[in-house]
Simulated assay, not measured.
Amino acid sequence: MLELRPSYECCDTDLPPQSADARICSFECTFCAACADTVLLGKCPNCGGELVARPRRPAASLAKHPASTRRIVKPGGCAKAA
């Protein structure tokens, strides 16, 4: 089950679990669409994997399986992908 992290790794902006703006890699590193598209160029800075739209959990399932409260933030933000 996806962790549904509560913030973006680069900019530490709050991320509601139902947001369509989240991008993740296969390890669930989580970034906003703006950082993913313009800074990271669709590539995860942690593993090099592809960043894709994070699926949204239906409200009924979210009540039973809530989003994580664990924030993961990259110190200094994210650098451009190489």
Rank of each mutant, 00 (worst) to 15 (best):
S68Q: 02
K80M: 12
T38V: 07
A34V: 03
V52Q: 08
T30L: 11
E50F: 11
L62D: 06
A63V: 04
E50W: 05
L2T: 09
D12W: 07
A22F: 03
T69I: 11
N46K: 14
C44M: 05
C25R: 08
C10A: 14
A60T: 10
Q18H: 14
S19N: 09
L2N: 05
A79D: 15
A36W: 01
C11Q: 05
F31G: 06
S68E: 00
T13K: 15
D14C: 02
C47Q: 03
L2V: 07
E50M: 13
R23G: 02
R57C: 14
G48W: 03
C78P: 06
R23M: 14
A63F: 04
A81L: 00
V52R: 10
S19A: 15
S7A: 13
T69A: 11
C44N: 03
P75H: 08
A33K: 10
T13Q: 14
L40M: 12
P17I: 02
K74C: 12
G48R: 09
C11V: 04
G76K: 12
G42L: 05
C78W: 02
Y8L: 06
E9N: 14
D37R: 11
K74G: 00
K43E: 12
A81Q: 07
C35N: 08
A59V: 10
C44V: 05
C10E: 00
A63N: 08
A67I: 01
F27C: 07
K43C: 05
A53H: 10
G49H: 06
L51W: 06
A60N: 11
E3M: 08
E28I: 04
G77C: 07
A67V: 02
E9M: 15
A60S: 15
C29H: 15
G49C: 07
L15M: 08
I24A: 05
P6W: 13
